[in-house]
Every structure is written in C-alpha cells, then in structure tokens.
Write a protein that binds this DNA or RNA. Structure first.
Length: 761
DNA sequence: TTAGGGTTAG
C-alpha cells in the first residue's frame, strides 16, 4: 500500500481523504486535513467526514486545536480562512487554544483579532474571558489586560489573580499590590494562593517593609497558619535579607518542612553564616523533618566552604546509612564537596555510586579532574560521555576548554570548540573567555583574537582574557592597545586586568608603563592593588635588571612579602648574575619554602660563577640533605597525533657549565624532530614542562628565520611565537624583541609548573 | 515556594 508523507512527518494511508502538502486549498467542500497529526484520531470521525456540517465542524476544530497546540500560527490563519469560506464556526473551546498559542508566541495583534472576532460572535463565557486575560498578560500587554479586566461583567477571583500574578512575575510588585488593593475594595475575598504568589515575588531588601505589611494582613485574615503561606513568608524574609524574621517564621511553623529550612540555609550561606546552616541541618535531622532532594546541595556546600571534611563525611555516612548516596541529588553534591576539599579519590568514588548521573554530576567530576591537574582524564571522560549521548551543558564545555588549554591540546580544543558551536553550548562570556585562553595557551593568539571578536559584548573577563593572551605571547604593545580600547568601550578593568597589563610590561621591559599602571590603579580605576600586583611590579623591575628598585618595592610593601615576591626578585638576580641580592632573596625563600629546588640550583650556579666553591658545595649538601633534585626537563612534539618526548640525560647536564648545556636542551631536539618530520608549510609546536632559557629562545628565533617556518614554543610559564615574517634580517633580532621577553630567564619568576605536564611514556 | 557548576594570571 502506497503512502504519502505529510509536512508533519506523519504517514497517512492513501485511502484517507489526503490532499498533498502545499496543495492550494481547493474549492472542494472539504478542508485540507493533510497536516492532521496522527494523535488526532480520524477513526471515529472518518465516517462522518462527508456528512453535512460535519458535527458543526468538529474535525476542523480538532485540527485547528492541533495546529494551535503546535504553535503553527500561519497555518492556523490559513486554516481559519478556509473554515470561514466554508462557514464552519470556530468553537469556543478552540478559542481557548488560540489564545494560549498567541500568549505563548507573544502574538499580541493576532490575539487581539481573535478577541475582536469573539466579541462580534458574542460567544464568550467566563472561562474564555479568563483565557483572554491570560493571553494579554502572557503578551505583557498589561494595559489591554487591565482594560479588559474592567470590562468583564463576570470577573472573579481567578481573573484578578491572573493579572496580579502576571505583574509579580514581571517584577512589577507595586502594580500587583495596587491591583490587590483595588480587588479588596471591590469586596472580593482573597484566597491564600493569591497572597502566596505576591509574597514569593518579594525578593529584594527594598520590599521588606511591604512584605511585613502583607504578613500582618495575613495574620489578620487568619491565613498565617497555612503551611505553604508560612513557608513563603520565611523564604520572603530570606530573600529580603532579614534572616531574623525568617528564623522566627521557621521556628514558629506548625510543622517545619525542608523547603523553609533549605531556604533559610541558603540565607545563612549567603550571609557567610555557614555554621548556622550546619546547625539548622542538624536540627532538621533531630526533629525528624522530612528531607528532600534540595537539602544536600546547600548543606554540603556549607561544609565545602568551611573546609569541614569531618562534617561532610558524617553527612556522607548518613546518606550511605539511609541508602541515599546513589541518588543523583545527593551523590552530585557529594562529588562537588569532595572536589572542593581536594579529595579527588573520594569524589571519584562518590561519582561512581550515583545510579543515574546527570549533566551536573559529569560536570562536577570533570571539574574535579581539571582541578587535580588530570586534564587528560577530564578529556577522556568528556570523549566517553559524548559517545554515550549523555546530556551535555555549557559548563562541561567551559571546563573542557580549560583542560585543552592546560594541556595545550589544540587539536582537541578546536574539535571541542566546533562541537560546542554545533550544539549551541558555548557559554555566553564565560565559555567564550575560556576559549580565548585556550587558543592563546595552545599558541594560537590569532585564533584567540578571532574568538574575542565573535563576542557580542565583551565584559571585563573577556577583555582581560584577550589582554592576558597578548601578554602571555610577549605582545605588550597590543595588550596595552587593547586596554585603551577596553576603556573606550566603557568596560571597567578589574584586579586581574592589571595583573595582565603588568605581566605584559614585565615581559617587554616597560618599566615606566608598569609603574604608571600600579600607581594609577586605585586613584584612576578604583581597584586596590594587592600583593599580586606588587609582585608583578617586582617582576617588572627584576626582569629589567633594576634589582635595587625591586628590593625597594619589597621593603616598602604594605603587606608581608610572600614567596612570589622573593622568587621574582631571585629570577632577576639570576639574569643579572647578582649574588649579593640573590642571597637576601634565597634566605627568605628558604624560610618560606625550604623545599624549593630551583632556588638551590640558582644559588649553586651563582656561587659557582663567583668562584665561591665552599658556599656552592654547602648548597649542594643542603639539597642532598633535603633529598631534593632538579626537576627533569622534558620537551615534546605531537606529529600525526603521536607524542614524541625528548629528555636529556639529567645526570649529564646537572650543575654543568652553561656553554656545555646549550647542546643538550631537550626543546632543541624536539624542534629538530619537527623540522624533519612535518611538512614545510606547517607551523611547529613544541612543549616543555619547565622554563626555556634565553639561548633556546634565540635558537628558536634563528631556526625560524633560516627555515622560514613558524615555531611556537610553550614552556611552563609562557608561549613564544617565532614567525619568520616578523624578522626582516638577523640584525633586527635584537631590536624586535626585548631581551627580557618570554623565556629569557631560566627560572623566571618561579611560578610552579601547574599547567604543563609531560606526556606519559 | 528551597540548590548545586563557570570565566580572566603568574
């Protein structure tokens, strides 16, 4: 039996009275039924289809309702035209769906036409009138709604409640209250739900007084003992910031419930009263309040913020005892709690107990892997859930962008980017900013720029991300230009923006500009400099060889200098070979972190260069006593998806003269391998888990010029692009790039290598 | 009616 597919994708037998889709409505007595979906049964009406008047157009009205339910406004209009031609009336019941459709689509003019048509037909009733009222409210035409409310002969409490509720949903609380007062004047007796609707919309401290007035009104009319009203009042006081009122309301409840208690716990956590939240939870348990699926999120959040592993574990045990840990609403907050407490193995186990993990659960797990530095595992999990058709969300993608960023995995990053676009899951601003950083850390500052340009209205974070991207690539002038542009666009910089700017200055030797930024932060931009900003300034001076100035900043700090302050200074001491100041810095570093192996290595080398062999030997002895070793350097390059890893025998180059070392640096081997194994026109991207030295920086630059290849070297602290097009001649090498551009220090400012990890063998 | 995730640096 042949069949025809109609435009709804529904198969109808060709024995049905089918007219092919897009067929122009003919002059036949019968209407186009081709679009009737399968769920509108034709069986019962089939025999009567050709009967006179068709039970007053029953089938046509059913079809009309079907189209309206599907929101097919144009088809509805066409179908009504054809019904009119056949003089088939629209049933009052159909109007209900027509008004619902107009409300859902916000089609005010169509709604008004249907309203007018109904008035002409004089077929209205109270129920339909309330539908019309709802339609005007859904279309946010409150003027039309109130005019109609005034005109209604048979308006009832429901009519008033419709408009009052619509006003509250739109946040027009004053209007809602005005209408309530009008209603009372008309002698309409309110019910509890109308008060409940009103109270739930009081969500701001400015509404507290009004809330109190309504509360007293409720007590007066005797609704205050109602369970749902009591809960609404407590939550209203929480939202209005009056926790004392909420506590009194909750404590006075005839029977406490989880909704009121959870609301109050949210209030406590917002007011940083996390201990009170835990106490309330404990009271809920002891008083036998029935728990629901919302409670655990908030109580475990309080534990996480307090870092209270003990209480969190007790709650976990409670859940296990009551068989709740497999519930997604319990298991997911547990995963999140353990991740925030850096207990990643516990987090993984909690995840595995969840019977049906949802996107929140996966998101918490992936975040855990990212936070523990296991980016490869995060990517693995992501790839698994993609193939399993797990529901994904923008937060998961944002996390994965970070994982790709940390792993410098451009191939995965670009694929995930395309995937997120296809699924519409790039989180507005946050996901977009994460993508800027991802491309930047993968060595693609141009892609980062493109990602930035696609943002419709960049916020401070997005601007900061692109500024930091340029700073990271040693492009200080572009970073500073972007900062000016950011100001022109009216976006205010934040504390991190200045970190990015100061980093840009330190990588390019812009001492004067760096000082200006630090000095103007507070006065001009209202951002208070923190220890991190001063540390950046120490780095600016140190990299520029101005060690006395750097030391002066440390000595005049409004804070206690931290490890970073001294390590930045020590980095500069190594570049300038200044043993005297290095000794001051090292003393302080050893005081704050006696296990920092890089400092021992620098001090050994500085003593050795100065011919102070006894002191050098002493440093070596200290290292041996503390069982410390220099971090093994490793470089790698990915060719055809395969990781090629290069490690220079550490025993050979450890503590050796620099001249000899230069032949042994692992990134040079990786670059050489890239030159041999990749097509001439492709860029070469090399990774290193520690910092590259200035010699390797120069080496890469020269290789780039000689071979005409673009080279990107990403080390533990930064990324450097070497593009032959940037250098016109060898002679320009020393002017194009400031001597203290990225990778000019062996140790840099001492940031730990948290981003790059050597691939497993 | 009550909740939980994320972004920008070294």
């Amino acid at each position: 039996m042949s069949s025809i597919t109609c435009d709804c994708g529904v198969l109808l037998s060709n024995s049905s009275p089918v007219v092919v889709a897009n067929h122009k409505i003919n002059d036949n007595k019968h209407i186009n039924f081709a679009q009737i979906p399968s769920w509108v049964s034709l069986k019962s009406s089939h025999s009567s289809l050709r009967t006179h008047q068709n039970q007053q157009g029953l089938v046509e009205n059913l079809h009309l309702i079907s189209l309206a339910k599907q929101g097919k406004l144009t088809k509805v209009q066409e179908f009504i035209t054809s019904m009119d031609k056949e003089a088939i009336p629209i049933h009052p019941r159909s109007y209900e769906y027509l008004f619902k459709m107009c409300g859902a689509l916000g089609a005010l003019s169509d709604g008004k036409l249907f309203h007018k048509r109904l008035q002409i037909m004089a077929e209205s009733n109270k129920y339909i009138d309330n539908c019309i009222l709802q339609m005007y409210c859904d279309c946010k035409s409150f003027t039309a709604a109130e005019i109609f409310l005034d005109e209604m002969d048979d308006r009832d409490l429901f009519s008033w409640a419709t408009v009052i509720s619509a006003y509250t949903k739109e946040g027009c609380v004053d209007e809602a209250v005005r209408l309530l007062v009008r209603m009372l004047r008309f002698g309409i007796i309110p019910n509890s739900s109308i008060f409940s609707t009103l109270i739930t919309s009081f969500a701001d401290p400015s509404m507290l007084d009004l809330g109190k007035q309504i509360h007293s009104q409720l007590i007066r009319v005797g609704f205050s003992a109602d369970d749902s009203i009591e809960t609404s009042i407590s939550n209203m006081y929480v939202k209005c910031g009056w926790l004392y009122g909420a506590e009194v309301a909750t404590n006075n409840m005839t029977r406490k419930n989880a909704v009121a208690c959870t609301g109050l716990m949210v209030g406590y956590t917002q007011a940083a009263r996390h201990r009170d939240a835990l106490l309330l939870f404990s009271r809920m348990i002891s008083e036998g309040v029935e728990l629901d699926e919302f409670v655990f999120s908030i109580v475990l959040k309080a534990c996480a913020v307090l870092g209270d592993l003990h209480t969190g574990r007790k709650i976990h045990n409670f859940c296990v005892k009551h068989g709740l840990e497999s519930e997604v609403s319990v298991g997911t907050p547990l995963v999140d709690f353990y991740v925030k407490c850096a207990r990643f193995e516990d987090a993984r186990q909690a995840f595995e107990s969840i019977r049906e993990p949802n996107d929140f659960s996966w998101s918490a797990l992936i975040a855990g892997y990212c936070q523990s530095g296991r980016f490869d595992r995060a990517l693995e999990v992501f790839k698994t859930i993609r193939s399993k058709e797990v529901l994904l969300n923008p937060f998961i993608y944002t996390n994965i962008f970070q994982a790709c960023s940390a792993a410098s995995d451009l191939i995965s990053g670009a694929q995930v980017h395309a995937d997120a676009i296809k699924k519409g899951l790039v989180a507005y601003l946050s996901g977009e900013s994460a993508m800027i950083t991802m491309y930047s850390k993968c060595g693609k500052v141009d892609y980062a720029h493109q990602a930035f340009f696609t943002i419709e209205k960049p916020d401070a974070v997005a601007w900061t991300a692109i500024i930091c991207a340029h700073a990271y690539h040693g492009k200080a002038s572009e970073a500073l230009r972007l900062f000016k542009e950011m100001q022109r666009s009216g976006v205010r910089p934040n504390a991190v923006t200045f970190i990015g700017l100061l980093n840009a200055c330190s990588h390019s030797g812009l001492v004067k500009e760096g000082k200006q930024f630090l000095d103007s932060m507070n006065d001009k931009y209202g951002v208070n400099p923190t220890i991190d900003h001063y540390n950046c300034m120490i780095d600016v001076y140190s990299r520029a060889g101005l060690l006395q100035e750097a030391l002066e900043v440390i000595r005049s700090l409004p804070f206690e200098p931290d490890l970073m302050s001294w390590k930045s200074l020590l980095g500069g001491c190594w570049s300038s070979r200044n043993l005297e100041i290095a000794m001051i810095a090292a003393d302080n570093i050893f005081r704050l972190d006696p296990l920092d192996s890089a400092t021992y290595v620098i001090m050994f080398n500085l003593y050795a260069l100065a011919g102070k062999w006894d002191e050098a030997a002493q440093v070596r002895k200290m290292m041996a006593e503390r069982n410390l070793r220099k971090e093994v350097s490793c470089s790698w390059i990915i060719v055809k998806g395969k990781v090629h890893r290069f490690v220079v025998d550490d025993a050979l180059c450890y503590f050796r003269e620099r001249k000899e070392q230069l032949l042994d640096h692992s990134e040079r081997l990786a670059i050489a391998y890239g030159l041999i194994c990749t097509p001439a026109e492709t860029p070469i991207m090399v990774f290193k888990n520690t910092r590259s030295c200035k010699d390797c920086h120069d080496f890469a630059k020269r290789v780039s010029i000689v071979t005409g290849r673009e080279l990107v070297v990403r080390d533990a602290n930064s990324t450097a692009d070497f593009n032959p097009a940037l250098y016109t001649s060898i002679a320009s090498l020393h002017t194009e790039c400031h001597p203290s551009s990225p990778m000019s220090h062996v140790v840099g400012n001492g940031a730990t290598c948290k981003a790059l990890f050597p691939p497993r063998l």
